[in-house]
Each structure stands twice: as C-alpha cells, then as structure tokens.
Simulated assay, not measured.
Amino acid sequence: MSLASLGISALFMVGCCAAAQIARFLSQRLVTREGIVPILINEAIAAAELCACCFELIIVADNFGVSTYAVCLFLLTIWWGRVWGDASACPYTHMEDLVEGRTSFKEMALRSWAELMGGCCVYRIVQVFWWLELAETHRGRAFEACNADLQVSPYVGAAIEGVATLLCRLASKAIGAKEPRFGSYIDSFIGTSLVVAAFNFSGGYFNPVLATALKWGCRGHTNLEHIIVYWIGACAGAILSVPIFKLGVVRRLLVGDDNGSKAKKE
C-alpha cells in the first residue's frame, strides 16, 4: 500500500481530533458548566473521538501492520490524555469511582450511556468517509461485513481482556501516585504495549465502549460472547484493580514503601 493512503488515514484521525476540540470549545461556550449535562457531553465527545480514530486504526493495522498501528495509537493516547480533561470514554473508570465512593450509581450509568451513544453514532461519519474512497485502503470498506477480532474462546478472551485491563489500571494508578516525569508517556507506552500483546488474541480493546462501537454484531462471536469478553472481562479487571492496588505488598512494589505506609495511615 502507498504512503499516500497512510497519509489520508493520518489526516482523517487528525481531523477527528480537531473536530472534537471544536466540539468541546462550543460546548463550553453554549452549555452551562453546572450540573451533569456538560459532563455527559464531554464524555460523548471523547468517546466519539476515540472510536472514530480507532475505526481508522483498523484500516492502518490491516494494511500497514501492527507496528504502524501501535505508533499511531501511542501518539493518540498521549494527545487524549492532554485534552480530555475529566472524560475517560470508558465506563469501568466510573465503576472504579463508584466502588471507591467518589460517584453515584446514577452518574456512572449516565456517563456510560453518553459514551455508548457517542462511540456508536460516530460510525456513520466514518462510513461516509470510507464511502468516498479517497484512499485505496478504503475501497469496499464502507459497507463490508465486519469480522470479530476474538481468536480464542470467549472465556480465554475474557481472561485476557480482564488481566490486561487490570495491569493497565494498576500501572495508571501507580503512575498517578508517583507522578514521575513523562508519566503520561509511560502510561501510554504501557497501554499500547498491552494492546499489541493482546492484538492477535482478543483484539486488545480494554474498553467496553470501544469494543462495542467497533465490533458489536460482527461475525465470529455471539452478542453474549461479546458481552462476556469485552464488558464482563474488562470491567472485572478494572474493578479488581481497586482493592489490589490498596494491598500493602502491591503498593510497595509499585509505588514504594513511603506511599504504602501513607496509604495504610489514611
């Protein structure tokens, strides 16, 4: 495939990020900053941005290899970490907050709903772009039947998504606690590495909204299997990270003795 096609994919992803920034700016200007509404709009925008870019990353991975996909994903995650603010575009982060008493069940459910709406609705925009076939890599993709990325049994896939999500969340919590220099780059590198490691087994989504937006109803697994792998597996891993990170031995390993002692006192 030509570099021109890769350039078009890159421009599309940059365009999606720019459009999301414009949407955030307009939201801040037009919507009151009080209440749950601006929070939900921010989550929907972040989820739409995430899923639109990841739809195009599928094109990149299929035609230019996993290494190119990984580089693009790494750069995107760094960008998202800088501009999303309090949005996560991922429901299990709100589940973690619920477990730790930082949010209510209602807010968790509403945020997750907003993320699903933003992530699933953006496909129509991506489909129109693919339909234009500006790049040779887009030929026939707009209305092509999708195939699931799950290459193992649903239970093994759920274990992979769960364990990888657990490791990813533990790493993020440790980085947040230690606040090292270039922490966002380290976090992005760890997340991207885990995605690449799981890529040929479960797809390495580690985000139920992303997996649902990209692969719900695809050939290769049933809807129930999809839920088991990408919702139950990933969410279980994230929720388990909360009590595991509080264990003394884990905190000493990840953030050092001083932080472990401080956590115990608190």
Rank of each mutant, 00 (worst) to 15 (best):
K215L: 11
N207F: 03
A263D: 06
F182C: 15
I239N: 00
T192W: 01
V71R: 01
H94E: 06
R181W: 12
G7H: 04
G15E: 00
I45S: 08
I41L: 09
V152L: 06
H221W: 12
R251W: 05
I160M: 02
W80K: 04
A238N: 00
S193F: 04
V229T: 05
V66D: 06
E115M: 08
L166R: 00
S193T: 09
E56Y: 10
L26Y: 09
G176D: 12
A198F: 03
I239G: 03
T222D: 10
I125Q: 06
D97S: 14
V66N: 04
G162M: 07
L214D: 01
G65A: 01
L57F: 12
A263I: 04
L73R: 00
I186K: 09
R252P: 12
T77C: 04
L6C: 04
R111K: 11
G204N: 01
S261K: 14
S112I: 10
C72G: 13
F245A: 07
D257T: 11
A47H: 03
V71Q: 02
A47N: 00
E49L: 14
E43M: 07
C146P: 11
E34D: 15
T68G: 03
T222A: 07
F25D: 15
K264L: 13
C51R: 02
E266R: 08
T103A: 04
A197M: 14
E115T: 15
I239Y: 08
A47I: 03
A164P: 06
G260V: 07
V250G: 06
L214R: 04
D149T: 11
A164Y: 05
G81H: 07
F201L: 13
C90Y: 10
A23R: 06
W113H: 09
M108E: 09
A142N: 09
V99G: 03
E34K: 12
E56K: 05
S9P: 00
G7K: 00
A234T: 14
R219Q: 15
W113Y: 15
S27C: 13
I59F: 01
A238Q: 02
V31Y: 02
P91N: 02
Q151N: 09
I186W: 13
E136F: 07
S193N: 04
V255I: 09
G233Q: 05
R29Q: 15
A10H: 03
L75E: 06
I239W: 03
A61R: 14
G237L: 15
E107G: 00
G157I: 08
I227G: 00
R24F: 05
